[in-house]
Design a protein around this nucleic acid. Sequence first.
DNA 1: GACCAGGGCGGCC
DNA 2: GGCCGCCATGGT
Length: 277
Amino acid sequence: MNYIVQKDKIIIYNLEDFNAEHILECGQIFTYEKISENEYNVLSKDKLCKVQTFEDRVELLTQDTAYFENFFDLKTNYSAIKNELVLLHQNLSEVIEFGKGIRILKQDIFETVIGFIISANNNIGRIRNSMRFLRENAGQKMGNYNAFPTLETLLKFDEEFFTKAGLGYRAKQIVKGLKDLENFDFEASKNWDTQLLKQELLKVCGIGSKVADCIMLFGYGKGDVFPVDTWIEKVYHDFFDKTEKNREIMRKVLVNTFKNLSGYAQQYLFYYKRSFV
DNA sequence: GACCAGGGCGGCC
DNA sequence: GGCCGCCATGGT
């Protein structure tokens, strides 16, 4: 990756592997705002990063360059990943070309947990609205924006608050889920392998197989997971088996096909399918 | 007015 | 263990 880090700015010159629209609108993150055609605000925890796209470069403007250098996964070679993926399945070439600027973000784990609990049987627009509501009504003020609330803060709110946030029937779930998270060792979990991590995540109310896979991919950076949602189900019917209806079976076949690059393959496929219908 | 959205839970067998 | 109906809400 060709980029330089300055005091409060990162400048990226390799636009083949970095496209702000691909990265932010591919469904992995719910906490960003589009400011104009070439500008996004990306929010993570208590931090803000402006993403400005120019003809020959992208500039990341932030007070915490180290945090967002990791957040945007700038040290990973996505050209190499894409070259490997096209060898694993014949349809990946066209799919990757469409979303070639995607990168898998390394998001805050707690924020990812909350976002994907809300995501169940929901759509991305409504998820973003709910996450914005939580930030603006429970998060600490940081000047001209709010931080995402901590677990300790969200534990103080009741079901009615989450209903107002637009969670619908998930309001009851998340109140229980937050209590479950009190017993979840976030620090230690970073060292767990995929199998143990999933087993522990599944103990939290609101987290099932697919949501756990998303948390492991977008929060923990696990490559050997393949979240299967309604869009991936459509892809599976197009590219693998038209009649399969069991998502767990799809997940196993897909992980077996893409191995430790499963998460990347999933994201290119998701973005492609959701864009074209 | 049915169908869909980055599914999960609880009850039933 | 697997299967199935139900679950709020807003947009087509």
